[in-house]
Structures are given as structure tokens and as C-alpha cells.
Design a protein around this nucleic acid. Sequence first.
DNA 1: CTGAAAGCGCTAACAG
DNA 2: CTGTTAGCGCTTTCAG
Lengths: 382, 382
Amino acid sequence: MPSLKQVADKANVSVLTAYQALNNLNGVDASTRNTVTEAAASLNYNFNITLRDVAAHAGVSITTVSYVLNKNPLVKPTTRELVMQAIQDLNYHPNTNARNLKSNEARMIGYAWHVMEDPIWRAAILDRFLYDLAQAAESYGYHVLIFTQPIQPGFNPYELLIRTNRVDGFVLTDTSFNDHRIKYLMEKKVPFAAWGYSNPDWSYSYVDVDGRKGMQLAVEHLIKRGHKNIAFLGWPDGTVVGDARKQGYYDAMQAAGIEPKAQWIGYTPNIFEYAHQAAQQILEANPKPTAVVCVNDVMALGVRHYLESMNLEMGEDVAVTGYDDTPVAQLLGLTSVRQPVNEVAATVVDLLMAEIQGVTLPKKQVVLEPSLVIRDSSRGRR
Amino acid sequence: MPSLKQVADKANVSVLTAYQALNNLNGVDASTRNTVTEAAASLNYNFNITLRDVAAHAGVSITTVSYVLNKNPLVKPTTRELVMQAIQDLNYHPNTNARNLKSNEARMIGYAWHVMEDPIWRAAILDRFLYDLAQAAESYGYHVLIFTQPIQPGFNPYELLIRTNRVDGFVLTDTSFNDHRIKYLMEKKVPFAAWGYSNPDWSYSYVDVDGRKGMQLAVEHLIKRGHKNIAFLGWPDGTVVGDARKQGYYDAMQAAGIEPKAQWIGYTPNIFEYAHQAAQQILEANPKPTAVVCVNDVMALGVRHYLESMNLEMGEDVAVTGYDDTPVAQLLGLTSVRQPVNEVAATVVDLLMAEIQGVTLPKKQVVLEPSLVIRDSSRGRR
DNA sequence: CTGAAAGCGCTAACAG
DNA sequence: CTGTTAGCGCTTTCAG
């Protein structure tokens, strides 16, 4: 309840002096400091600088201060200056909770990630994407709240966060077909935007990186290098991401007039060791592939591992490409398809902000193009 | 301003019916739904369920509801049940902003990470640590707010977040000697806890993983495998982390009565390519090392790369160990020192919570032990 | 252009 | 054991 002004009055000094005394700044003599400290203690003052304090120090009403903070153009420039100075003097920062309570918002977006079985991609996405996401959010005056998604039936962290006004909306990644999170959020009309595509008949805000195109780039690159017997190592059918990438392989092969042999196609779960085994099968095919495009970097590393065990060299004996351009790809010289993560993050936040503000965008589905990063693993002799 | 009760009264129905009507739940006939919707519209009702609504529906005062929410034991069990039911009926969730405004807290901890030059460690820490951090925070009813640290003089995100009541404290990682963030936070008495040690004469809450011990484990393991000529590849002196690890190398060598030759010691910045070059120098020493312990996994991969270029095999021809047990280490079979990331995160949050609550812990510096994960890179013949 | 005042949704004396 | 009430710090009509 007590304001800085009351403390100042009680100590018989100015608001500014009271502030300086309480914050151990110089320019206040010891006895004054003492008087002020006692006054503060007797009033049970809590040291929070509020609008009221700034107003008292500037000699204006709190309304005026609020207007200055919110850049309301009605304020006379001289008054504005006065208030700005007072804000500086007292090092005032508005209380977010109060502001949010009043405006009924959180200026916060929620993001949770899955614990996936792919360590390197999981790591890569978190690093680059999360950073870019935070930055994009900050450009809107928002922040990112991260949370975990416990596997507990009857407990929905998304519902909890939105209903308690903790966040204004969500960003999703690693979407799947019939994604239950998307379903829930659409049903409840909760603002969200996703990185990734889900069901063709669901209309929600998302940005997608064209996986078909990415794989085409890889295959075309190999063809240009003289390869014809190009194998594909992917995941079992049914994942949105994997299926799109596989389609890209077929499309590029067809466009080049090459008939992919059935033995060139391998499917395994996204596990390094399995990829090793699958690589063996594929590379024993007849005609023998001279190149393998993989659905992601983990799989490509599995292939590399198999080649090593056979005393063959990736890039020399068999060309290999990965997908996602994880840090490992860079370290090991693996050609890989790179997604424009920065742009994805920025776009996803743009889409989410539109949702939060209730703005209807003409196009709330954005498809971005991946690019191919060529390294030694696809540079060797044909 | 209008409460659900007012809407209900105007439509001449119960609070519960009004709620059901407005949320398109079943059990309400179309005409009632219409009446309620109109009443809501005419009152400009905002669809937020508040304490007041729950109280009205349960037929008690808002205090009682608040007591139930805060598990105040004064409430009679029957009343409690009644209120719980009302909360259920209306799917009520308390507004965090209001609660935080009242209690002057944020129930949020801030975490920013550096953009470092080490991609795989950066990725690794974010993945494991951030997840564990979020989980630990959630166990206290807190959440993690992530932010970036722009390199702009005159702009201090830490100050901004704490002064605006966005967060109650911070978690730091990647601490350095004379860390300016720690200095600032200590000066301003802002609650924080760090993963990592800084200046010996600064007394702040931190958890540290004993780097000296970790390196000792690696060296002892190699000695047990029969190695004597063990080289060390580290960073230039002056980093808290690097120096501790180097000390561990010397200590373990000395304990085994081995005199490390000067040519066995290499220093380079934390860059893959440099590590490759340094490895060459070290391995041309006389007597020639049969093993190299590295200050982290990136350096170890640099060594591995050099070996490959010489047609030598890591683990077969030269034993190599890394540090940090990043995902890549796992994929490539690199023996590495693992930090108990989960425990670090949990402890750091424990320490931070004590700071926030103003509790003085008997021991606010915690040192945890690393462990050695043995893989093929150190298994081969001596 | 500036000020007075109502109130966002909640907590916690204080009084019954 | 429960209700009344005064704010937390801010925004924003509505008067001046």
C-alpha cells in the first residue's frame, strides 16, 4: 500500500532523494539515508517502483505516465520528456503481471518438444529453432515458455497453460498425421501455428518445408554427378515427413528416366543400427547402387558406418546424402538437405501472432524451400 | 465487468446452464442456448470463468473458493467438495496473471544460452539440459522462459526481465571467469543459480561437475588398458572448464608415476579443423603417444579426422577419449565423459528456488561427479 | 492535453 | 468455518 511518495513525505525529502537513499546510490548523505530507511521500514514499504511513484516524482497523474509508456500521441512533448526523465531517474519498469491482467493477455507463447528417438535431430532442432523462435517472439514483445509434455492421460498441459492465461498461443513442431494436439487446439479454438503439415483436410496455420523438393535436390545432384543407380533409405510408410521425402526420390528418378529397382529401396525405423543393416541389404542389390539418399542424417550415418565396416569410404566408393544438415553432417562431411530453420521460426511466429490477434491472413499455410549443402560424401568419383 | 451469474440471471437460467450454453456443450436445448447467447452479447460478456462464477455456481463466497484453490485447511470438507464440483462443472482455471500480481511473483525462471562456437555441445546441452530444467521447474509449479542475449550495449535482458516481474530468477550456464552476468546479478541481489563455477571468491549458488575428476577417469581408464604415452588435447589456458580438465590429466598421470612429455600437450581453440592439426603435431611426438584424451568431443572428432586422413583407425591404432558424451560420441563409438545433466538441472533449480524464497541453504555450492562412458574408441589393442 | 476513477481476477486480513 | 472488503499495478473510459 505505501507509495514511495509517502515514504518521501514521511522523511521530508523528495521522491528522487528517497529513491536514491533506498537504493544506496550516491548523492545522499548518511543521515538522510537513515531517515528514509526508517520511514520505509515503519511504513512497511516494499521497494517496488510503480506508476504512482513516477507520477509523483514527475508531478503528473498516473494516467499521463501510462500514456507515455504506451506511446499515446496525446501527451504534450514537454510532459513526455518530463515523464521520461522521471522514469529514468527511478529506473522504472512496468509490471508485466499488472499489464497482462488488465489486458487479459500473457505475451507469451508456449512451446513443448517431444522426446524423440532421434538424438541428433532433436538436438539440432532445439538449438537452432528454439533460438530463432525466441528471437522472433521477442521482436513482437513476446517470450517463449517451454514446457514438457508428460505422458499422463487426463492431464493436458496445453489446456492448463492457455486456460490459466500463462500463454496466448502455442507453437508446435514434429507434427504427425492426425496429430491429437492439433485436433485439440483447433477444436478449442486456441491460437497456434505449427512447423509441419498434418491432415490435408485440416485448415490451420502452418509452415512446411517442402520435403519432396529437398529429396529431389539430392537426387538431381547425384544424377548430375553421373550416378544412375541411386538407392533410397527411408522410414516405414505413414509419417508425413518421410512419405514426402520418399515421393521426392521417386519424382526425381522418374524425371531423369531412371527406373528405381525395388531392392534399392530400404525402410527402417529411425535408428542408427538398423540403418547399418538396411544399408547392407541395399548395397548388395543387383545392379549395385553407387549412391544412397537417406531420409535423414541418422540414417546416412548408419550407411556410413556400414561402409566403414566394409572398409569402403563414403564419398569415394559410395555417395551418400542425408537430410536436416545437423551439426554432425557438417563435422563428417556429409552432403545434406538444409531446412531454412530461421525463416521457419520467423514465419511460424508471424502466423501465430495473426492467430492471437484474430487477424485472418489471406494465406495461413506457407511452404518454404530447402536447399542442398554439398560436401565430400557426394563429391567422389562416380 | 459482467459475470457469468449476471448473464445467467438475465437469461433466467442457472450458472451451470449458462456455462453449458455458451460452450456448446450438450444438455441445453437450442432456444435456451439462444437466450443465453443473446444475454451474453448484450452484456458484453467475455467468456472468462472467474472465481466469482465458481462461487456463484457453488453458492459460496469467493473467499471460500480461493481457500479451496490454495488448499487452506479451514474449509469444511463438504464445502470443499461442493466447490471442487463447481470448479469441475465450469472447467475453471485460476488466472495466473491475477494471482501473480497479487503475490508479486512470476512463477517463472529465465534462461538464456550463448551462441557458442561449439555446435555439438551447444546442441547437446540444449536438448538434455533444457528438457530437464523445464521438468524440474514444473515440479515446483514454475515454468522456464527462454530468451536470447543480444550483444547490444546498454540493453540488459536480465534487468528487464526481473524488473518487469517477468521472472523470479535466472539459471545460468556456460559460466566463465569474471562472468559479467554473475557479477551483475550478485550486485543487484537478483536470485539466480548457475551450472558452473566462476571466481573462487564469489559466493553464489551453483552446481559444478568435477572436470578434474572426469579427466582423471579417462586417463585412469587408458592406463588400465595399458597405455602410458597419453597425450592431452585442450583449449588455451584461461577457461574455467578447460583448466580443471587439464589439471585432471596431470593429476592422473602423476598418480600413475608417468611424466607427461611437453610435446604430448596440445592447445587449440575449440574448432574441429584446428584439432585436426594439433593432433598431427601431438602424434608426431617422440615418444609417440598411443592415446589422446581430449577436452571435449569436438576435439576428439578432430583427432579422429586426422587419424582417418592417415589411414589410421581410432580405437585400433590410437585410443581417443572425448568429454561431454554428446550424441555424436554415441554414434561414432567415442569413449567420453558424461555429466549427470539431469541431476545438474534438478539441483540448479533446487538452489534457485531457495534463492527465490530467501531460504539460506547450508550448502549452496554443489559438486557432482561425472562418469566415463566406454566405447570402441578406447577399447582396441594397446 | 491531463486527471479521477473504475476495475482486470485474485489473495488475505479482518470480522463475523 | 465463511463472507466482506481492500487492494496488487496497470489501462482506459469519461470529464474537465
